[in-house]
């Protein structure tokens, strides 16, 4: 039972991390109608900046702040220089251009910092584990990731529903020409939304980088999951991104753990692992297919 609860926590942690990625992706798609494959690069940029600044200053938190800032700045620059020209182009052009950005970012990072991973460790105060009620021991750092993810989700909710900026974002989603006509500086709004999405991706990259390793191409596997999340949640919907991310995180984690042991009851361990992990790897795509079969626009479609 504690095993099941611990795995739920792990799923929740993966989910909240995916939410940080997916919320930026879904906002950019919802507001600007842009498919941004380079979102994973901001994740990598955030992680690299955090690792480098943490190593230089000796403080993880200074590094984290730098990582988020650098990701936001890089995001704003990318919007100003490249992405701005893509809003009126067909989706295929956007995919091509942002895919080129992935290659440029990856090769550029490899060129600057080499291809071996950088090391980034969680800060001393957040290392180790705590006892949760019910006799469960859980790493503090992963709990912090969950808390940060929830805090960001709540913050996003207030930002979108209660502030002027959020009102403009919502207006931009439903009719972008009209809010331009009403005198809102739409170009600046787009840059801001894009940089915000990049900052959230940078935050995710920095936090996960400390748990794993910081290396070239670390963003792409996460990006694929984030796309699954926004398709399940409904493109353009922050609420959908949150529910989608937690659903994907929990299903993926539980599938990975319990499918092999399920097949292990009537197969040898290595066969069970093979079959189980193959099906576990497909599980979120099966989930996506089932959801799309009943709700073709995702769980919480922003546009009807």
């Amino acid at each position: 039972m504690t095993l099941f609860i611990e795995q739920l926590f792990n799923g929740l942690q993966l989910g909240t991390m995916l939410f940080l990625m997916a919320s930026g992706l879904t906002l950019v798609f919802g507001v600007m109608g842009l498919i941004n494959l380079a979102h994973g690069s901001f994740y990598m940029v955030g992680a690299y900046a955090t690792a480098l600044v943490s190593a230089a200053t000796g403080s993880f938190f200074v590094g984290l702040a730098a990582g988020i800032t650098v990701a936001a700045v890089v995001g704003a620059l990318v919007e100003l220089i490249v992405v701005r020209r893509l809003y009126h182009r067909p989706h295929l052009d956007q995919v091509l251009a942002t895919f080129a950005l992935i290659l440029i970012f990856s090769e550029g990072t490899r060129w600057l910092f080499g291809s071996s991973p950088l090391w980034l460790n969680p800060p001393e105060v957040l290392s180790g584990s705590v006892n949760l009620p019910g006799g469960l021991r859980y790493p503090i750092y992963r709990l912090v990731i969950i808390a940060v993810g929830i805090a960001v989700a709540v913050g996003m909710y207030f930002l979108i529903s209660r502030t002027r900026l959020g009102m403009r974002i919502r207006a931009g989603e439903s009719d972008r020409e009209m809010i331009g006509a009403l005198g809102v500086n739409i170009a600046r709004l787009y840059t801001l939304v894009f940089a915000m999405g990049a900052a959230l991706a940078g935050l995710a990259g920095a936090m996960v980088g400390a748990l794993q390793s910081v290396q070239v191409g670390m963003g792409e596997p996460v990006l694929i999951l984030a796309f699954v999340v926004i398709v399940i949640g409904g493109i353009g919907s922050i609420k959908g991104a949150l529910y989608g991310a937690i659903l994907v995180g929990v299903v993926d984690t539980l599938g990975r753990v319990f499918l092999p042991s399920f097949f292990g009851q009537f197969m040898s361990p290595s066969e069970a692992a093979g079959v189980g992990s193959a099906i576990a790897a497909m599980l979120i795509y099966i989930l996506m297919a089932v959801i799309l079969a009943f709700k073709p626009k995702g769980l919480f479609a922003a546009h009807d």
Binding site: E6, Q7, N10, L14, P139, V257, P269, S277, A281
Partner: peptide, 16 residues
Amino acid sequence: EIYTQMGQTDYAAEIA
């Protein structure tokens, strides 16, 4: 016996 994915980076589930 626990088998993981090749190139996996998160081992929370296995550690549990």
